[in-house]
Design a protein around this nucleic acid. Sequence first.
DNA 1: GCCCAGGGGGCTC
DNA 2: GAGCCCCATGGG
Length: 236
Amino acid sequence: MEQRLLHIYNLMYEKAGPKNWWPADTSFEVAVGAILTQFVSWKNVVTAIDNLKAQQLLSVEGICEADDERLEELIRSTRFYKQKVRKLKSFCMLLREKYGSCPDRFFEQEMYALREELLKLYGIGEETADCIILYAAEKPIFVVDAYTRRIFNRLGFFEENIRYREMQEFFMGNLPHDTRLFNEFHAQIDGIGGHYCFSKKPDCMECPLGVLCKFKKSNRATAPVRQDAQATVKRK
DNA sequence: GCCCAGGGGGCTC
DNA sequence: GAGCCCCATGGG
């Protein structure tokens, strides 16, 4: 199984190249981005992060001290902004009260202790917690998401309604626990989800995983077949 | 105008 | 624990 997963990883990596996640200047910025990106495209998050930076508010103290209304205005582009202000504040209050406003002291603790503490916070569920652990604290936990579910369901690995925990155990049970691998693997899955594996009308012809995909095969009868793809089939 | 996107909380049964 | 609704912007 490990070899199958690494083969999938290599197909994605060869097509897209390194993703170099997560785009941020500091670990704290990664964590803020992880909260803001909940159910919204990354472009909207960049706007909000830039706004916070421009107002010198992208810090533990900055967020703790700022008025809710002011923060709401700055992160409006990320949807559900009232809830997200509450989420950011709950995270930053923890860092201030328990870690002396020093994010690195928080991130340096043991991975599962960190996870437990994150999950107690308002607005941080499993996926956001794991994003923070992998991309901010740089510890080897495997992040799964809606794209992972869809892609690996279509590849034939998962049932469509598989739970988060089960998906995560699958990857962590079958891959070496390596932060760099987990970082790049999730980033590549995200790339496939965003570029090819749409819920409706996926672009199976261009997808680097098409050669392995059961969904593509079952979809072939209804999907428009391109000329060059037809030619490839005939040659065989 | 309409659809949908990298989640999580809270409620009900 | 599963199922449902709520939150409420921006781009195609």
